[in-house]
């Protein structure tokens, strides 16, 4: 999605100030907001979630000066409102164009490319498993060691061993998984 060039200089600073008067907190909120909007676009099956997120910020940037005077409440909800509008626009464009046949994972890429990608993924996985450190690697190994019904009892046992709830274990593993996934994605992007 093309970026709007008619954005007044200093608008980005205004966005940060609007999000939070503390510049450091505002920076964190901005990063987190971008991340959340990308997710929301994904949940709503929008193509190019990153591009749409840029569009949200572009639209807000154009009005931020005025908004700071008029909008009351959590500014992040205004960003969300803009995102909802974009989702409506996207859903009109995409509705009725998704075929399950097109989503067959195995069929989406030619065999050679699929094999290359698989090898690259394996290399990146090995590399990133080393990067996350032994303790985290062992937890991932333990958490995913069993499947289906057996994994429920196994994960309860792992949580008991660590002295935490299963819920806390899920979140702990999710954090490691996110780091791992981020590392693998960067590695794969670097290889392409």
């Amino acid at each position: 999605m093309a970026r709007d060039s008619a954005i007044a200089p200093g608008s980005f600073d205004e966005i940060l100030t609007w999000l939070n008067s503390d510049r450091e907190v505002a920076g964190d909120q901005y990063v987190q907001l971008r991340h959340d909007l990308v997710k929301i676009f994904r949940w709503n099956r929008c193509g190019d979630p990153e591009g749409l997120t840029d569009e949200v910020f572009d639209r807000v940037l154009r009005k931020v000066h005025e908004l700071r005077q008029t909008f009351t409440g959590d500014p992040r909800l205004f960003f969300y409102g803009v995102a909802r509008n974009l989702i409506k626009e996207e859903s009109k464009r995409l509705r009725g164009h998704i075929s399950l046949d097109d989503m067959d994972l195995a069929a989406n890429a030619p065999a050679g490319e699929h094999n290359n990608t698989r090898l690259m993924r394996e290399e990146c996985l090995d590399l990133c498993l080393q990067k996350i450190g032994r303790n985290k690697r062992e937890l991932i190994l333990d958490y995913y060691a069993k499947e289906k019904q057996a994994k429920i009892d196994h994960r309860a046992e792992v949580a008991r061993r660590l002295g935490i709830s299963v819920e806390a274990l899920r979140v702990r593993v999710y954090r490691i998984r996110s780091t791992l996934e981020e590392c693998i994605n960067s590695c794969l992007d670097a290889k392409r």
């Binding site: 099956r45 979630p49 498993l129 190994l141």
Partner: peptide, 28 residues
Amino acid sequence: LMQYAYTSAQQRRLQITQDVKHWAITEQ
């Protein structure tokens, strides 16, 4: 499939999850 196998990023995420699971089971 409608939600998570739609974009290439989602497919990659699925494949990474599958790779991690496969690695864990094989290693175990």
